[in-house]
Design a protein around this nucleic acid. Structure first.
Lengths: 332, 332
DNA sequence: GCGGGGACTGTGACCGGTCACAGTCTTACC
DNA sequence: GGTAAGACTGTGACCGGTCACAGTCCCCGC
């Protein structure tokens, strides 16, 4: 087996210098048509492929981005949302001939490793997923000067780091308005963790839209997981049965709520309407299919990648806010 | 901002040569205790971290493995199994200071890209997930001499590529035996795709254990997804109501089957018992909690990584077969 | 006819490691 | 006391690209 062809082999085959080959590869400016043609032909003939490592070494760029998950593990397993984002990001990067490196920072040991790895410059930037408030990891990344974009406005770090997000407040208001429009008045909310943007702002939107009808006794908090949704619903039911709709801050929690309601002998949506948030894969196969707010997952992951590349190029891009859409199905 | 310290900075700080520093970093053989100490101290003081790209270039190793998904996308979204494997692999690699590159080969265009990328040597090896029979990608990888290990015996490529798998036949027999032990006689099977090992061999085990009681009319095939499980169950019910248990080749399909049964007014497990396979995250939060065969996901991903590293080192390791365990919950 | 500028090309240094090899310095043994 | 083996160390070449710089060539205008 002969070794892989290098840029010198191509240069020799094309009868030009390494420099010219390099120029052709990188856009081909200031190269004569003849030379360009010869080089392209030579590349084809030799089956040349650029060596990532060598290029990285010379340019000082890694050619890869990290997809950094900071959630506790059980969420990674359960939440289809992560898979959606992950796939979108991988696709967006593949289009740009870059690669996606998956990093999981669950345990403290993992966090240390990850921080070290990233600061060492093994990746050009970080796509930070779902960070809780005042996450020290964000500080570390910022301090180390690692280009970073967040998914969802990182509480406690607003304006310090570019973000891609949806308008949580407006989205929550829209869903609430929809539920009220269907005649529901005693609407409960199963919010997300109050130290996450989705937990905080969806609740704000809900409260704003409910106005005088807002009843703090009808709010419970979960951690986005199915189980936490089921438990939150139990707590609500234990307090009062005077509820005609539930708005959960994630589809997973909505599904958990449905389970609890069913056990309590309540029908969805006949007795109580249930709405979710995310439109994760689970929503439309769920029984009953969940009414939810769709987050534009592909645009989010694509936006994160674009933004991050801008940051890497030295820009300070404005935060990107994307629209959600109400998806009405059977549960509400 | 000063530039990152290199091995030469460390050498200067420690008062030794680059060679010695390099030796310390790589295990420290043939280095005097004094020198080693000085180098370690210098590394600490300078905050030195090895440059991946430079090392790759010099050693000819990428220092990363690809996690290659060949399933159509909708499965990636739904199946918690992938997340389990992915996390396990990422963890196993992090322990070895290597990184995980995620590759998705869904569309033909993506497959071409992936093949090109991998053959170019940008990763040291490939963890191949869930490949259907006679997948041309396997051939391409094999032909290109890319170290590869599969998850589940790749039909049509047995013995050509090292694999990590569970004993599908024995596992299916155990579950079938359990169901029969509970007094069920008319047991239906919702099998996986017949061109996947899980689809083929779980059915074989089922058939073997059923012996004379095996009824081909009670077998339907799904694609492991929840929806396909629901549809398969519908087809079974349309054919006969004389069924007292269903064995699905995945938890997702089991969940789908439960939905269909419920719609048909049948109670699980009272009227019909339902068993799944995988013990994916969903199984124990499902309502009712699913009886299933647990696959040892962490050992599988860890085994794949170990095996792949052996292959990369030139070994030809024996296939690894891991045990499953019957997990009895509420559904059967 | 000459100077100057734009288009194109080639060269050598460099990125930050590893590795083979050629030392040097001990120690041990005859 | 000489020598050889073993322990340790330093050096230069090399991995495969990129980039800055220095040419070279050609065309144009004065």
């Amino acid at each position: 087996m002969r070794r892989k062809p290098t840029i010198r082999d191509v240069a020799a085959a094309a009868g030009v210098s390494r420099g010219t080959v390099s120029r052709v590869i990188n856009g081909g400016h200031w190269v004569s048509p003849d030379a360009r043609e010869a080089v392209e032909e030579a590349i084809r003939r030799t089956g040349y492929t650029a060596n990532h490592a060598a290029r990285s070494l010379a340019t000082g760029r890694a050619g890869s981005l990290a997809f950094l998950l900071t959630e506790p593990q059980h969420l990674l397993f359960q939440d289809p949302t992560f898979a959606l984002l992950l796939r979108g990001a991988a696709e967006a990067l593949a289009q740009r001939s870059m690669t996606l490196v998956l990093l999981v920072a669950g345990t403290p040991a993992e966090r240390a490793n990850v921080a070290h790895f990233v600061s060492a410059g093994h990746v050009d930037g970080v796509l930070l997923i779902s960070s809780h408030e005042s996450d020290p990891l964000v500080d570390e990344l910022l301090e180390a000067g690692v280009p970073t974009v967040c998914c969802g406005i990182p509480l406690g770090h607003e304006a310090q780091v570019p973000t891609v997000s949806v308008d949580e407040i407006a989205s929550a208001r829209e869903m609430t308005r929809y539920l009220r429009g269907r005649g529901h008045r005693r609407i409960a909310m199963i919010a997300g963790p109050h130290d996450t943007p989705g937990g905080k702002f969806r609740l704000v939107g809900f409260e704003e839209e409910m106005g005088d009808d807002f009843d703090p006794a009808l709010v419970e908090e979960g951690d986005y997981s199915q189980e936490s949704g089921a438990l939150a619903m139990s707590r609500l039911l234990a307090r009062t049965r005077d509820i005609d709709a539930v708005f959960a801050a994630s589809d997973l929690m909505a599904a958990g709520a449905v389970t609890t309601l069913r056990k309590a002998g309540l029908r969805v949506p006949d007795d109580i309407a249930v709405a979710g948030f995310d439109d994760s894969g689970l929503a439309d196969t769920h029984e009953p299919a969940l009414t939810t707010m769709r987050q534009p997952w592909d645009r989010i992951s694509d936006g994160m990648v674009s933004l991050l590349l801008e940051v890497i190029d030295g820009a300070r891009p404005a935060p990107l806010m994307l629209p959600t859409t109400l998806v009405v199905r059977d549960s509400a």
